[in-house]
Design a protein around this nucleic acid. Structure first.
Lengths: 237, 237
DNA sequence: CGCTGTATTGAGTAGGATCAATCTACGTGG
DNA sequence: CCACGTAGATTGATCCTACTCAATACAGCG
């Protein structure tokens, strides 16, 4: 699934891990080859930055493997993780000249890099591409609005439950089997900064979920949801 | 400013209060007339709903006057105001079949209503229109991400300061004079639900700002910023 | 001129932050 | 292969911000 048998074997997109789910999938073979000409592959080690807040927003990325976090930092050091991105998702849309936040690999990641200007060209030449891009941004917008509900109204318990369900769903998107296994490549601090909590609170609430048998912690960054039903009820959104 | 002298006098868009700033401004006269055929004008009294969470998302709106709030409600009654919308802004983009939140007039409002499907057609036929729409959604997305910072990291004082600056900037967009007057047509509860605070906290913090001479409260829903400098410093974002 | 809904102010409480002390996993080097 | 060092995670104790509940003030309206 997701492969493109009509592409030349030497074409890098042929074996793209996120094939059909990425924006690129709306392009025909010629257009793809064209876009690809300008795109190049990027490898990031865990912790490596992709771009910084304030950099000129002249690149757009398609994440093919790994997890990337977007965050911004206040002068006094407070940090908010805006989003975690999973394979198949896009990074780097910006309505202004500059990126408004920093992007950094959480785990080793590979990305496809495109020039934003070239992206714009394709949006003009392909209705399907433009529509797909718009839908993607609109989807991100709804996700951001859901986050307002979580950050504005939910308790610590509810935030964490929501987060676990969300990561489960999004990382589960492609792999087989509806197992309750959730990979958590990000640190507890990352999660805390994402949920607007202190890292100690994340730890405590995680322990509480463990105590009630809702989740089981396989290793530091691998967790099993044992009672999805109850977790969902906690998540509220 | 914002008028379209090349339009027929009978055409409603000619005197549109938000003329050049709305999405429609990217359309040429013929296209506009065409779009307009399908659009109609809407008048809402304060408190009247525009659409409800779960309604089919078959309408898109351009706000020409007044203020509209978007919100969603949890089963237990907790309510999050997602956004306040000001004249010139668009309402009703949805990546799914249904609206994901409720829209309601805060003050008397007038809107231009379009059929979403027809909107899509125009996006396909006009690059400029599609680009403008995309930019608008991308801008909304950045705003939503700024909100994550506010809701996740800011103190009550900072949230309120941020809110006042934001409303000042957005309502000040068209009117003349850089006065410090800020209209607050929404109730304290609305503000509280927008900022993820209790209404009592909003009241208290507002009183605190008044006590330090940063703002002056002209009437219940009219406020003057007397020291923009200090308010901005408090706002942080 | 009182009535009603909204806003403000007050008193007490609780949920989550902060500060601090272990504990654990993992990488490094002997 | 194991001992050690370090960074991240967990748990504990205390504090503080903002919430809740309650009383009062105020504005708009019949």
């Amino acid at each position: 699934m997701g492969r493109r048998p009509d592409l030349d074997w030497s074409h890098a997109c042929r074996d793209c891990a996120v094939g059909t789910s990425a924006v690129c999938s709306t392009l025909d073979v010629t257009a793809l080859a064209d876009l690809r000409n300008q795109g190049s592959s990027i490898q990031l080690a865990a912790g490596q930055p992709l771009f910084h807040q304030g950099d000129p927003a002249d690149r757009t990325f398609s994440l093919t493997s790994g997890v990337v976090k977007l965050y911004s930092v206040l002068p006094d050091g407070r940090r908010q993780v805006i989003a975690f991105h999973f394979p198949g998702e896009f990074i780097g849309f910006s309505p202004s000249e500059d990126y408004h936040c920093t992007a950094e690999a959480v785990s080793a990641a590979t990305l496809c890099r495109f020039e934003t200007g070239r992206f714009e060209q394709f949006a003009r030449s392909s209705d399907e591409f433009a529509r797909s891009r718009h839908e993607r941004v609109a989807r991100d917008l709804v996700a951001a609005q859901t986050r307002a509900m979580v950050l504005g109204q939910a308790t610590a318990r509810e935030r964490l439950a929501h987060f676990l369900c969300d990561v489960h769903r999004r990382s589960q998107a492609r792999p087989a089997g509806a197992s309750g296994i959730v990979p958590l490549p990000m640190s507890r601090s990352d999660i805390a900064e994402y949920l607007g909590l202190a890292k100690e609170t994340v730890s405590r609430e995680l322990s509480a979920l463990r105590a009630t048998g809702i989740v089981r912690t396989i290793s530091r960054n691998l967790l099993e949801i044992r009672d999805m039903e109850r977790l969902r009820r906690l998540a509220i959104v």
